[in-house]
Structures are given as C-alpha cells and as structure tokens.
Amino acid sequence: MRLRHPVPYEELDHTADAGVLVRGDSKEETLGRLVLAYADLVTGGAPLASGADQVIEVEAGDLAGMAVDVLRELLFHFETERWVPESCEVALLDPERGARVVVGTGAYDPVAHTDGLVLKAVTLHAARFEPEGGGWVAAVVFDT
C-alpha cells in the first residue's frame, strides 16, 4: 500500500525539540505514516511535487530502532540531496530481516516550505514502535 503526503499525525510536546506520533492498522502502514509525518515537519505541511522513487534499506533490529534508522537515512538524503518523501510504501519491516522502504521523492522548495522545521538528527530518545489495541503506534523525537 503506497501512502501519500500528507497523513495525519500528532506532534509531541518536547521542551526543546520536535516529535511525532502516528498510528496504523499494520506495522508497515505505521512506518509509512511515520515517514510521511517526518516529511510534513520538514515541509511545514506545504505540498510536494512527486518525483522518482528511491529505495531505503536498513539492517535488522527492533522495530523502533529500524524506524529511527529509516528516518536517519532520509535525513541524510535531505541534507545532501534536498528531497523529502512525497509517498511511501513499506516493502519489508521484519526484526530478523531488516526494512525496505520505497519512497517517492519530492524536491524541497525553500520558499514554499519556509514554515518547515529544520530537523538535525533523529534520536532514540522516547522512540517507540509497538502494538496498541488492534493496531500499531510509533513515536520519534527529532533534534532541532
């Protein structure tokens, strides 16, 4: 299932930084929503044009750690290539095998996205990815 920016998410209240919390029916959908919530913080909610797909792969680990690692990769690409995810499809999310995420890239526009936050790092601080009710919940705090 490919999700597209924007998606609903909760902004976490942190004294100095920014965090997001998302929910989904499956863990794959939840990671996809987390990826697009990150995009929304960076763009300030302004629309993104869709571009070519890129594949992000990270090593196996616990779900929260893999989610943080996917976002770390995206942040590095943003810092060096200036794109953010416009769409997202999680092809694999397995603590034994790792994660594989296909993202549709959207070019960052410093004028259109001027209300976006400058995210400098993705932290393990308060990172969570766990079942909740019949679905999943994930949260990440970013250094700003």
């Binding site: 680990g61 750690g65 690692d69 590095f76 400098k120 790092a121 993705v122 393990l124």
Partner: peptide
Amino acid sequence: RGLGHQVCDETLHELSR
C-alpha cells in the same frame, strides 16, 4: 552544523547496538 550532527548520530547508532 551537519558535520557534527553526523559524527554524533553515527556513533550513537553504533554504540546503541
């Protein structure tokens, strides 16, 4: 700037494991 963030980020990633 980004250079320092990357140094910290990579070390924390490695250390956390």
